[in-house]
C-alpha cells in the first residue's frame, strides 16, 4: 500500500527524514511511532504530496508520489496535525466544500455522503452552529468525517486521538477497526504507545528521522523466555528455583523458564502457593526505549549528535515530550 525507498528530506541543513524505507501492506493497521520531532509528520506530508522529498522514492497504492497525486489521493483520507475547518461555517458546510473541492463525486449524492460520514464519527446530530463554537473533540470528529468522506482505501491519520476523551478514543478505535476489517488500510502516527498497542497490527518506529524498527506487533511482543510468578511463599519459591530467579521484588519473581505451565506444576507440586503466573512478554514501551533516544524536543548539551529539532511546522507542538506509555510494562498473566 505504501512503500518508500531511502526517503530523505532536508530542511536547510537539518535532516528531518533520513533514508526511511517504509512498507505498509494492504489491510494493515500500521502504527507509526516516534517521539515528537522525529520526522513522523514530515514523512506523512511527503506521502501525501504536501512536502517534496529531497531524495528517495514513494509509492502509494503502487503509484509514484507525488507524480500521480491526482490518481492516488482521491482514495486516501487524511487527518494531518489536527483537524481544520472554516470556523465561520457549519460542519456540514465545511464537508460540502471539501467534498466539492478536488475531483468531486456526484453533486446529487453529496448530502448522502456527508450524512454517512457524520454518522460514522457520531456527529449526525450536529446543527448549523459554526465550527468556531465546536469543542476540540467535535472538531477532531469532524476532521475524521472529512477523511472518511469518499470511502478511502487508505486512511492516513496523524495523531488522531488528540483532543478526544477516553470514550471518544475508544469509539474511534472501534471505528478504525471496523473500517479496517471492511478493507481500509489504516496508517496512523502517534506518540501514544497504548493507542498503537491496542489498535495496530504493525509498527514502525522512527527516531531522529531514521526508521529504527518496522515489525509486526505480535513479533515484537514475543515471549522473552522468562516467567513472572507472584507467590505469597516467595522465599520458598526462590530457594527452590535457585539459579533460575533473575529478579525478585517482594512476592514477585522473574524466573528463567521456557514454559509457564510446567513451572506452575513444579511449584504447586512443591506446595508453593501461586497467586499469579504467566510468561513474560516484552512490552512495546521497552522495545521503543530500546531503540530510541529520549524525546527529541529535549535539548541536551552533552552530545552534539542530537540536533536541535523542530517539527515540520518549525514550532514545538506543545505536547508532552517523549514517548509515553502505560505506567507498567505489558505483563501478561
Amino acid at each position: 500500500m505504501i512503500v518508500t525507498r531511502s526517503l530523505t528530506k532536508h530542511f536547510g541543513s537539518f535532516t528531518a527524514v533520513d533514508h526511511v524505507d517504509l512498507e505498509v501492506q494492504e489491510g494493515d493497521r500500521y502504527g507509526f511511532l516516534g517521539p515528537n520531532g522525529s520526522g513522523k509528520t514530515t514523512v506523512i506530508r511527503m506521502l501525501l504530496g504536501l512536502v517534496y522529498a529531497t531524495s528517495g522514492e514513494i509509492e502509494v497504492m503502487g503509484m509514484r508520489m507525488p507524480a500521480r497525486s491526482a490518481q492516488v489521493l482521491p482514495h486516501v483520507g487524511s487527518l494531518i496535525e489536527g483537524p481544520s475547518s472554516y470556523g465561520h461555517m457549519s460542519g456540514r458546510a465545511n464537508l460540502a466544500l471539501l467534498d466539492a473541492a478536488g475531483t468531486a463525486g456526484s453533486r446529487r449524492t453529496r448530502k448522502l455522503r456527508i450524512n454517512e460520514a457524520l454518522e460514522r464519527v457520531g456527529l449526525d446530530g450536529i446543527d448549523n452552529r459554526s465550527v468556531r463554537k465546536y469543542s476540540l473533540g467535535m472538531r477532531q470528529r469532524l476532521g475524521l468525517a472529512a477523511a472518511l468522506l469518499r470511502s478511502p482505501r487508505l486512511l492516513v491519520l496523524d495523531e488522531p486521538a488528540n483532543g478526544l476523551d477516553p470514550q471518544g478514543i475508544r469509539e474511534m478505535r472501534d471505528l478504525l477497526v471496523e473500517l479496517n476489517e471492511a478493507g481500509t488500510t489504516v496508517f496512523l502516527s502517534s506518540h501514544q504507545l497504548s493507542e498503537v498497542e491496542q489498535l495496530c497490527t504493525r509498527v514502525g518506529i522512527v527516531d531522529r528521522g531514521r526508521l529504527v524498527l518496522q515489525e509486526r506487533l505480535e513479533a515484537l511482543r514475543a515471549p522473552t523466555g522468562r516467567v513472572v510468578v507472584h507467590s505469597p511463599d516467595a522465599d520458598r519459591a526462590a530457594a527452590m528455583l535457585d539459579g533460575q530467579v533473575q529478579h525478585r521484588e517482594g512476592d514477585r519473581l522473574v524466573v528463567t523458564a521456557a514454559d509457564a505451565t510446567e513451572l506452575n506444576a513444579r511449584l504447586v507440586a512443591a506446595g508453593v502457593r501461586v497467586a499469579q503466573i504467566g510468561a513474560e512478554h516484552r512490552s512495546l514501551e521497552e522495545t521503543v526505549f530500546a531503540v530510541t533516544g529520549s524525546g527529541s524536543d529535549r535539548m541536551d548539551r552533552a552530545d552534539h549528535v542530537r540536533h536541535p529539532v523542530r517539527d515540520a511546522r518549525g514550532t514545538a507542538t506543545g505536547q508532552d515530550g517523549g514517548v509515553t506509555g502505560p505506567p507498567a510494562g505489558g505483563e501478561a498473566g
Binding site: S69, L73, S85, A101, G102, T103, A146
Partner: peptide, 14 residues
Amino acid sequence: DSGMLRYLLTRPVG
C-alpha cells in the same frame, strides 16, 4: 493559516 490548505491539496486539488 487556517490549516485548510493541506486538506484542500490532499483532496486532491492540484
